[in-house]
Each structure stands twice: as C-alpha cells, then as structure tokens.
Design a protein around this nucleic acid. Structure first.
Lengths: 200, 200
DNA sequence: ATATAACGAAACGGTCCGTTTCGTTCAAGG
DNA sequence: CCTTGAACGAAACGGACCGTTTCGTTATAT
C-alpha cells in the first residue's frame, strides 16, 4: 500500500506549471489499482477517480495507458543486477534470488507482468520494454565479463546473451504464476544453467 | 489467411442443434482478426461482425473472450515436441527450431502471444495455459529421459524442469518481438544450455 | 497587470461489453 | 404429422471506458 489520499480536500492548479502533488497522486493510484485489481482493472477513468484527478490532466502527461504503466514500473526500485561474489554460480543465484524476492515481496511482480502483457498489444510499450531489457542485459552482462576475465566461463559465452538466457526462466515463471520457487529449486536451476545438462 | 466468407448469403439455424458452419466461421474470423490486428483488435463484437454471426451465438458456446482465444489456439497444429535424433544437443536444437518455425511462418506465434497476454488478465486463461504447459513439459521431457538412459545427461537433471528451462528463452523472444534468430544463434543458445557456461 | 498554462469537473460521441427480445428455421419426440 | 424446444442472426438495451472538449479557477511567468 502506498496510501490513497494525501490532501483530504480538493487539489487544484498551482499556476502555469506541473503540480507534483497531482503527479504523485496519479502514480500512486495507478500502482494501487494495478496491484489490487491487475491490468484488467487498470483504466484511465479508474485512476482519475481514485486520484481525484481530471482525465485531461492524466492525458496531458501520459498520452497512453502504456506510458503511465511504464512510469509506475520505473518508480519501483530495483535489485542489484550484477552482484559480485567471486564465483559465477553464486553471482547468478544471487541475481535471480534478488529478482524473485523483488517480484514476490513488493509490487514489482504485478507491475512487471502488466508491462509485459501491455507490450503484447501496444507497440510503444513493446519498444520501451525492449530498450529497458537491452540496458539490463548490458549492465548485468558484467558478471560474465568478470567471470571470463577470471577464466571461469567459456570464451564463447556472449555476456548479453547469457544474461538473457539465465533470466528467461524466471520470466516464464512470473508469467505463468509460479514464482513460488524454493532456494533449493533455484539452486538446481542455476546448476542447470552453469554446468549444462551433460553427464560429467 | 483462412478465408473470410464461405456462404455468401445469410447463415441460419439448422434446428435444435449446434451449427458447425457458424462454429467454423466464428473461429476463422477470430483467428483472422487476431493475426491481422493483434489482441487489441480482438473483441466479440468484431468477431461477430466478421463472421456474420450473432453475439448471443458466440456467448452461447464461448462464455468468455479467453475460451474463444484458447479454442483458436488449440486449432493450430503443433510441432514435434520430442524429436529423437540420438543426441540431446540436436534433439533440443530440433525442438526449438521447430517451435520458432511454427511461430514465425504460421499464425502460431501471434495466437500464442495473445494467449499469454490474456493469461495475465484472466485467471481462467492462466489456468488453462498452466495445464497446457504442464502437459507439454511432460511429453517433451521424454527427450531427457531417453538421454539419461543413454547416460548422456546428468542424473540430477529433472526432465520437466529441463524442458521448462530450454523453452523459456524462446518464450522471452516471442514476447519481446525478437524471433528473428538465425540457426547459428540458436546453435549457440543450445550450446549454452547443454554445456553450461563454465570454461572447459 | 496581463498573458498563459495547469488544474478538477462535467459532458460529448463512439466502441465494446454482456444481455434481452424478436422472428426464423428445423430436429426431436409424442 | 404436428407440436415442442433449441439454435440461429439481427437489433436494441444500459453500462463502462475511451479520448476529447468545454468550463471556471488558480497562480506562475513576463
């Protein structure tokens, strides 16, 4: 819960400039609706009602549903994408575990699911998501660059591609409502990824 | 393209029983709309218009949007989920390559994307998708059972989990509009999965 | 002091929702 | 053979949300 109504009375213009109170109220209302009712309940009308804001105010600053959604998403503060524990296997475990915790405990999971779903309909959301993911892969790829420098991972490993591979499993779990992964299960998954499937 | 209008004139009741012509027309119209306009264009109204069907006829047989969507999806005929080439690496390559071709060349990709997106909103769709996936993992897990019998993959590998892992990468690519994977790239991905990321 | 822009509220025409009402066509059962 | 009942397409319903416009108010920027 991020709260519902900060000013009890009517909020109004503060002159010829954007009202940060309105902005906050709208983003908070949007997040609350998304978490409580999912993407199905997420409409501009509903956000406007809950935030006690006018629809034109929302449309002025967020021209589409997707931009508002992405703004809610970006307000979430994220986990460490490139932990440095000294070994690649624990790095990956830590990364995925942090991601799962972020999705499970906060509102991150519900919001991110919605962004992905929106991207299946709205090309702008799709593009924004792609750009965001590319950036994450670039940053997170650091754990593989370090591991390659240590001689720990094979030289044919492409850091960005490896990042994409190791995160795709938890993506799928997020989208199929099966985020209840125990640390033991996660360790097994990481083992699959690091050591491969071959017999020793 | 599955065509648009089979009977040029008005289609009517054939008595106190379901009219298969109407059923076909509705499913074809639904698929066409989905492929042409995506999930955003997919409404019961639009399907009824295009199929020259009454809305009550659709609601009678498909109580929700999700059930119609899933029916369209299930009409797609699918690829071999458990190829048997003799080695696990080529088995996996063949499996993923078939999946990519199915998604890229036919309508399978567009339809499946929509099903996943719908599952983020509709709990019924989510449940149906989960059941379908569990079944696919069970069937596809056969390639790992065979490989374990050959002593080719490690004995700690869980077939169903391994299936989930190897398919999650292409899932993510489907959902982020990046299915343009060359055979070389795919081979590299499979290499990641089979041999792991470690240095030899 | 005036021009300008953001604000919330209310209302607009339009689309889709899910349902009901109608006249029809025809299989099933007495 | 003839009545009953169910499925059919069409049309219309109230309701929700869309994206936009119109309004009176507020206060910054010039």
């Amino acid at each position: 819960m991020t709260g519902k109504k900060a000013p009890p009375a009517r909020r109004t213009s503060i002159g010829a400039q954007r009202n940060p109170d309105s902005q906050d109220a709208i983003l908070r209302a949007a997040e609350d609706i998304l978490v409580e009712g999912g993407l199905g309940a997420f409409s501009i009308e509903a956000v406007a009602r809950r935030a006690h804001a006018g629809k034109p105010t929302i449309y002025r600053w967020w021209p589409t549903r997707a931009t508002l959604l992405l703004d809610v998403y970006h307000r979430q503060k994220y986990v460490d994408i490139a932990p440095d524990t000294g070994t690649i296997e624990t790095d990956i475990f830590q990364l995925l575990n942090g991601l799962l915790e972020f999705w499970n405990t906060g509102h991150g999971g519900a919001v991110f699911r919605s962004v992905i779903a929106e991207a299946q309909t709205d090309p702008a959301a799709s593009k924004a998501l792609a750009a965001y993911m590319a950036d994450r892969y670039q940053q997170g790829g650091e754990i593989f660059r370090r591991a390659k420098a240590r001689g720990e991972v094979a030289d044919w490993v492409v850091p960005e591609l490896a990042m994409e591979i190791i995160t795709s499993f938890v993506w799928k779990r997020l989208l199929t409502d099966r985020l209840d992964i125990t640390p033991d299960e996660l360790r097994l998954v990481v083992r699959h990824l690091v050591h491969g499937l071959r017999a020793p």
